[in-house]
Amino acid sequence: MEKTLIQPSIAALISSAIAIIYYRRKSLDLYGALVLFLSMTIHFAVGYRFGAMLLIFFCTSSKLIEDGEEKKRRMEAGLKDGRPNSWKRVLLNSGVAAVLSVAVGCLTGWEDKCLDSNESVLVTRLIGGIIGHYACCNGDSWSSEIGILSSERPWLITTSRRVRRGTNGGVTKIGHLSASAAGIVVGQTFALVGLHTTSCFDRMGMKELLVVPVSMVAGLLGSMIRSLLGATLQFSGFCVVRKKVVEKPGPTVRRISGCNYLGNDAVNLISILLTTLITSTACVYIF
């Protein structure tokens, strides 16, 4: 009963505070704030570790996007679409993990469980999926926002040909490092919060810290999957009139790479799903 009453109340308080703060800062519209509140409440109500991963992803990514917005506007015509302020964007970046969190809660009786395949392969797979989800989202966000602002000119991940900044599928060394660092942050958040809210370190020992390198690899993997999809199934071109990289073909647009099959949201969703699946499977064998 204590778990049932207290933790959801704390979850709602934390989530409402975060949603209100970002709504007032105009980082979220009203519906975006509502979806964030609901999703974050679900995460925290099931497990503090899950809510903390969503929180660290959302806060760091929002900060990076806001800091780089002015410089990116000079390079990309479609900047406005990339801001995480709508309910669709928030749902895209947290919806799958919210569903997995509910599944974990239902299977465990809303009790915190460890990454331990000997206890439950399915629960370990689901928790691993949530970790992979946020490592992917954070890795993609950090690599995109930091990589595009680096002095290094990106190269296309499929051909290694140098391309303009803002090209889908364009990668840089600093972008790869940023994706790895973003994954590490997610893994560390999971481990540190778990240290104070669960008994997993007492049961699993230092093996629990393996979540950090797993999350690091997931962050880099998610970013690379996103880049591969962007370079092949997402159009990139250079508009000779606006002098910017654009994502739609047109009479004034010179093709750089890719085909006009998928948009940003579809590419992001596929990369999230693939990384979630791969990480969940890996965790079964590691833990």
Rank of each mutant, 00 (worst) to 15 (best):
F37D: 07
L38Q: 09
I42A: 14
I42V: 15
H43L: 14
F44W: 06
V46K: 02
V46H: 05
V46Y: 05
G47F: 10
G47T: 03
G47H: 13
R49S: 13
F50W: 06
G51N: 08
A52I: 08
M53Q: 12
M53P: 09
I56M: 14
I56N: 06
I56T: 15
I56H: 02
F57W: 11
F57E: 03
F58C: 11
C59N: 09
C59K: 02
T60V: 11
S62K: 05
L64E: 09
I65F: 06
E66G: 00
E66Y: 05
G68V: 04
E69L: 10
E69N: 07
E69F: 03
E69C: 01
E70M: 05
K71I: 09
K72H: 05
K72F: 06
K72E: 15
R73N: 13
R73P: 04
R73M: 11
A77T: 02
G78F: 07
D81F: 00
D81L: 08
G82H: 09
G82N: 09
N85H: 15
K88E: 08
K88F: 11
R89Q: 13
R89V: 11
V90Y: 03
N93G: 09
G95T: 05
V96H: 02
A97S: 15
A97L: 01
A97W: 06
A97H: 07
A98P: 01
A98M: 12
A98W: 01
V99D: 02
V99R: 01
V99F: 12
S101K: 00
A103D: 06
V104Y: 08
C106P: 00
C106V: 15
L107R: 03
T108N: 08
G109L: 08
E111V: 14
E111Y: 03
D112T: 03
D112F: 09
D112H: 12
K113T: 13
L115G: 03
L115N: 08
L115S: 07
S120K: 10
S120L: 08
L122N: 04
L122R: 02
T124L: 03
R125W: 14
L126N: 12
L126W: 06
G128V: 01
G128T: 02
I131H: 01
G132F: 01
G132L: 00
G132N: 06
C137H: 03
D140E: 08
S141Q: 03
S143C: 02
E145Y: 01
G147S: 07
I148A: 13
I148V: 13
I148Q: 14
I148S: 14
L149W: 02
P154W: 05
W155P: 00
W155E: 00
L156D: 13
T158P: 04
T158C: 09
T158S: 11
T159C: 12
T159F: 10
T159D: 12
S160Q: 04
R162H: 02
R162S: 14
V163W: 02
V163G: 06
V163S: 04
V163D: 08
